[in-house]
Design a protein around this nucleic acid. Sequence first.
RNA 1: CGGGAUGUAGCGCAGCUUGGUAGCGCACCUCGCUUGGGACGAGGGGGUCGCAGGUUCAAAUCCUGUCAUCCCGACCA
Length: 570
Amino acid sequence: MKMSKLFVQTLRDFPQDAEAMSHKLLVRAGYIKKLANGIYTYLPLMNRVISKIEQITREELNKAGAQELSMPFVQPAELWKRSGRWGAYGKELLRMKDRHDVELCLGPTHEEVITSVVDGIVTSYRQLPLNLYQFQLKFRDEIRPRFGLLRSREFIMKDGYSFHGSQESLDEEYQNMWRAYKRIFERCGLETKAVQSDSGAIGGKVSHEFMVLTETQTGEDDVFYCKHCDYSANSNHCTSILNDEITTTRFDKEELIDTPNVKTIKDLAEFLKVSENNILKSVLYIADSKPVMVMIRGDKEVEETKLLNVLCANEIRPATDDEVLEYTCCVPGFVTCFGLENKIKILYDKSIAGMKNFVTGANIKDKHKVGVNFKSDLNFVDVSLSKAGEKCPVCGQPLFVTRGIEVGNIFQLGTKYSEPMNVCYTDEKGENKPFIMGCYGIGITRTASAAIEKHHDEYGIIWPLAIAPYHCVVVPVNIQEPDQKEAAYTIYEKLQKNGVEVVLDDRDDRAGVKFKDSDLIGFPFRITVGKAIKEGKVEFKMRSSKEFDVITIEEAIKRVTEEVLKLNED
RNA sequence: CGGGAUGUAGCGCAGCUUGGUAGCGCACCUCGCUUGGGACGAGGGGGUCGCAGGUUCAAAUCCUGUCAUCCCGACCA
């Protein structure tokens, strides 16, 4: 490809409305162009990156025994009604009607479709296990798309689904996919950590997310991990053990005391000279229109995904001040569970276990109780957000926290779809059984973004060779110089013959322009043809390094070709 | 959905307070000059000022509505 013909426009400045570095660079280097909020055109450079990531994914999945197919993007509502998700999925599902008033939606995921595809084709246990996957556009009407391709509404995903006749078979395939995922991301130049996670709207019990750890704000999830063992988990799934802290106070008798206008935990702790973990906090939620009070230690926060799961609710939200008054007959800030046991549902978070002589509300305005103890044994649940420094549930060592970008996930779905949709096979005994299913996703466009988040510098993108849009750029410093021009063309053609994906920067521009562009776009290798061509020498430079070597044309071609050939050995 | 902000040329912005011929930088076209890290000079093309109403002799500017976008929060495989 000649640079003069390449459909790309680099910008001198970073776009003003971009926050994440990958977003800024993708726009500035001419990879994407926004059409609408969260909807982007993938320009030729981006398209090539996407193809590379898809191809690596395809190779590894095929090697792992999966088969590629392609399912429709537009899906009928009827399918979603059969699985029960038409009502449950929420507003991320973009719904519409066709000219006959038939309800349709844009596919945010394909569990329903794949289940109906398999229906009638796979009828016997002899056909199992089976693993099918596709690369497909997804549309999720996100509340707030942001960070460019890291959270867009329209995106490309590899989604795969497996079908089994036993849990053992699913376990095996789950491990198989786990290994394939590790290889895929490794080949894409990304180190990932598989963390336990909540399975959310997809459903199922066991699930892991493959996270690229970032430590910048661009990662959207908090990941807890242990340095001493393998444990790691998303914040919505982390079950840390609390440290042994002071759990009692100097108040050894239960007493009602005046606390005028002391509403927050922080103020209360200061007012009474106790620590926040001596206070029993009451938080009122509305779960599917019903009130639920969560009792939790004062220094802890409620993890709403955990709460949602414990309640088996579809939707939860914190109660408004008016609702607190309605259900507890007390203004927020002075509420407690005592006396409300028979009125509303109360959950006791495990963080309050062992609290003695604690402080809590009195259900009376401007009053709290001190020296309180629970009279009977409680059933504890885990609905609190973990904190860095709390103990690993596996080995007891302190946990650390970092930010992460979720680039892939694997779920054990079980019969969540096959059962309600009544899609079955016949087993060895001639009985009809719903399929046991697994589901495996990789965000292709998000993976590209994550790669940029991890691999860039102040000048631009530094693509891992395997997913770069082109391997190499050849830059004649001055295309007007016949020697340079001729040599550049020769190198360009030889590299092409060797199977190297190469761009010749044949533009009649100053060298600075070409260097800036090649750094910005991120070609892994650059061969510069300058004055040294009179001695038959060129410069060989890697994007990832500041240094360059002055070597012969032949040597430069050899180095690039060898590196590219190494890729194919993977 | 709540809070904040912004819509003026492909991109980045000024002009709006105090209404009176729509501007600047980059990009683009022509010519010259230049060619090792985003040169320079001269000339040129391109804008329903987000959209719709209203006030006014006159609206990018004032008023009302509306749409879109961005940031924070809530929320989210």
